[in-house]
Simulated scan of single mutants.
Amino acid sequence: MQIPKILHVSFLLATLFLLEGCAAQSTLIEDEVKTVNIENLKYYLYYPEEYEADTEKDFGLLLFLHGGGESGGEIEEIKKNGPPKLLVEGKQFPFLVLAPQNPHKRKWWNTGAVVKLLDSVVETNRVSKKRIYLTGLSRGGSAAWELSTQYPDKFAAMAVVCGMAPLPYAHWIDKDMPIWVFHGDRDKVISVEESDRMVAKLKEMNYDIKYTRYKGVGHNSWSRAYTNDSLYIWFNQQKRD
Rank of each mutant, 00 (worst) to 15 (best):
L7K: 08
G136H: 06
L134W: 01
K154G: 00
K188C: 07
A225V: 07
F17I: 12
F59Q: 11
T15P: 08
L12N: 15
E52Y: 07
Y211I: 04
Q2I: 10
F93D: 02
T135V: 12
G60Y: 01
I190E: 03
L41R: 12
Y43Q: 04
L134F: 00
P84H: 04
A200S: 11
P48K: 13
Q2M: 09
L62N: 05
P152V: 02
N110W: 13
I173P: 06
P83V: 01
W180K: 12
R186S: 15
I233Y: 07
G141F: 06
M164H: 12
M158S: 11
Y169A: 11
V88L: 14
K175G: 03
F17L: 13
R240I: 05
T212N: 12
K91M: 10
E56F: 12
E89H: 11
P166F: 13
N206P: 07
T111A: 12
D153T: 14
K203T: 02
T15L: 13
V189G: 06
K154Y: 00
E70D: 08
Q238T: 01
A113Y: 15
V36Y: 13
K85W: 09
F11I: 13
I132A: 02
V189L: 10
N81D: 09
L12T: 14
K215T: 04
E39Q: 03
R186Q: 15
S138F: 11
P168S: 15
E76C: 01
H183L: 09
Y207I: 08
V121D: 12
L28W: 09
A170M: 09
Y226S: 06
Y214G: 03
L62D: 01
E194W: 00
P100H: 01
V181P: 00
Q2C: 05
W145M: 05
Y207E: 14
G163A: 08
W145S: 00
K116Y: 10
T135N: 08
Y47H: 13
A159N: 00
K239C: 03
K42F: 05
I6S: 03
E49S: 08
K201D: 03
R139S: 06
V97F: 06
Q2W: 00
K5I: 13
D196M: 11
I38R: 15
N110H: 11
Q101W: 03
K175M: 09
G67W: 03
T135I: 05
V189F: 06
N110P: 09
A157E: 05
A200Y: 02
E49T: 05
K107T: 04
L28K: 07
A23D: 04
V160N: 06
I173M: 08
R126W: 05
N37T: 14
V97H: 08
Y211F: 09
G60K: 10
S142P: 10
V189C: 04
P168N: 15
E39G: 11
G184A: 02
P178D: 04
V160R: 04
L202F: 02
E193Y: 05
